[in-house]
Amino acid sequence: MYAIKTIIYYTALSLLRQKITSFFLITTIFLIGIGTLMSTVDIGIRFRLFENILLASQTLLIHLFAWIYTFEQWRKEFSQNLFVLPLSTDISRFQYLVGRYLGIVSVVIILSSSLLLIDLVLLRVIEQQWLFFPLIQIFFICLSAILSISCFYFFVNITSPIQAMLYCIALWFIGHGLDEFVLFSQADKNSLLNIFSQVLYYFLPNFSVYDLTSAIINRTNITLYQLVSPIIYTFGYSFILIYLSCLIFSKKNL
């Protein structure tokens, strides 16, 4: 356990010290500035555009930087053979991989939490009330990014880091359109397309479960199922992917 903790700590620290983190912070401030400028525009629902820009930009930022951090980490591991030193001690491959994974997850959680706090203050200043409802989406974006990192860890053990990143981005886009694809294919319930869509729906990571932006910005009711299911889904799916990654990594010829 101590070994895993140490790996998490050093992974998180090394990632936060990277130049890309400063770039992340500058981009975040820039996008928040655009959102704030748009807060005066009323398009039928007041502050809808502001909240929409805020959530959409943060969805993009958190995912983008989760992918970049994971890619950078694995690119360095492969190019500089960083596995060698820790694995020459009594740390097992399982501990190493899990430690690395949790290190990146903790970085994503730190970034999402800082955005959560910034948004809370910003919403208080602009909308003149404490609003916790829009922050649910930031939490779900964080969960979505964690699942995306798990997918990356699975692919990186099979292919190269650059291919793993491309697969991850593709899966993220496909995963977001799965709901619409199932709806579209349900027109004919006995068709092959419907069966195919059902298989994809339950087999591929379904990122649309994290998307509550529409319900949040329009202030419609959110059910308990919508709130709880993404949390269980993330932990369940990530556990399976990381377990499979550990199995592959333990037999990999480094």
């Binding site: 929409n52 959409a56 969805t59 993220w172 886009f173 359109g177 619409e180 649309s208 529409s214």
Partner: peptide
């Protein structure tokens, strides 16, 4: 529009705002 919605993914509410404007 269904295909367009699935392509825009999580940004579809923002796209809705754009088309609405």
């Amino acid at each position: 529009p269904t295909l367009f919605k699935s392509i825009t993914g999580p940004f579809s509410p923002l796209a809705a705002d754009w088309f609405w404007l």
